Simulated assay, not measured.
Amino acid sequence: MIRGIRGATTVTRNDKHEILTNTAILVEDMIEKNKIIPENVASVFVSVTAELNATFPAQSIRKLDGWNYVPVMCMQEIDVPGSLKNCIRVMITVNTSTKQSEIQHIFHHEAKKLRPDLMNM
């Protein structure tokens, strides 16, 4: 079964170092909490809000041990008026026997506001 594991974080400004650092921390947390093995990952999609263009956040994922062959793609998030700014969203699709209800979606910083219903899981 392929399952999606969702994560999101925010940065304080459009800064290459902060974007790469916060993305790496988020993905490492997603990996740890869901016991993800790179060989089982089908793909990773990363979206950023329109004001974040200092770098491709996927660069930090490709530097993780064993992740250099995992297909990773960056894209711009839909610019909905009033939506959370400075946000980086990650969707990891992974082959797993873990039940949908047991997947741990991870939200850091201001991104915790996106899915408060998943925060107590």
Rank of each mutant, 00 (worst) to 15 (best):
T55P: 10
K99E: 14
D117E: 15
I36Y: 00
N95F: 13
L52N: 05
V72S: 01
H109W: 14
W67F: 08
G82E: 02
D79A: 12
K35A: 13
Y69M: 06
L26I: 03
W67A: 00
A24S: 10
E102I: 01
E18R: 09
E28C: 03
I106M: 04
M121P: 12
L20F: 08
K63T: 13
H108D: 07
A111S: 15
V94S: 14
P71W: 02
S83K: 13
M30Q: 01
A8F: 01
N14I: 00
G82H: 04
V11D: 03
G4K: 07
T93G: 07
T21S: 02
N40T: 01
I19N: 00
I106C: 11
P81W: 07
S83Y: 01
I25K: 14
Q100A: 12
L52S: 10
M73F: 15
N120T: 15
A111W: 09
S101N: 06
T55W: 07
T10H: 07
N22Q: 09
I31N: 00
L118G: 06
N53I: 11
T98R: 15
V80E: 03
S43A: 12
N40G: 05
I88T: 05
M91L: 13
I61W: 01
L84C: 10
I2M: 02
T23Y: 01
L26P: 02
V90R: 05
E51D: 13
K99C: 03
E102P: 03
M1N: 13
T96L: 03
E32F: 06
C87T: 14
N86R: 02
A24N: 11
I25T: 05
K113P: 08
I2L: 12
I92F: 14
N95I: 15
I37G: 10
V72A: 05
T55H: 07
K112N: 09
E51H: 10
R3N: 03
E39M: 07
I36R: 04
E51V: 11
